[in-house]
Nucleic acid binder design. Sequence first.
DNA 1: CGTATGACGAGCC
DNA 2: AGGCTCGCCATAC
Length: 109
Amino acid sequence: MSLFERVYAIVRRIPRGRVATYGEIAREAGLRGGARTVGWALASLPDAEAAPWWRVLPATGRIAGRRIEAEQRKRLLAERVRVDAAGRIDIGRYGWSRGSAARRRSDRG
DNA sequence: CGTATGACGAGCC
DNA sequence: AGGCTCGCCATAC
């Protein structure tokens, strides 16, 4: 299993309606400062549907690159993930690994 | 094998 | 709070 495939497998574990950061994926894949590598891997996706790449965001919470901004925003909105007009997402609210326990409370609100 | 590049990240004003 | 700068890791040539 190549590194890219490992990245895809991890990305596929992100629940619908939730998001993760490149850095998180990188760490899950065994890399430390490999956030950029994750971006590289997702940019190399064979198909747009091969993995839910749109659920992966920079730690800044802003949608990466203008090139994919529109597409990503559309897909996120389709999952009820709120996207700011400036392309910002509240990772604190939709974040994947934000502690499964503490999550549910704020999720209702 | 060395240099350049990228869908990033954390620290600094 | 928001924009810059330098550092990271893997791939391409």
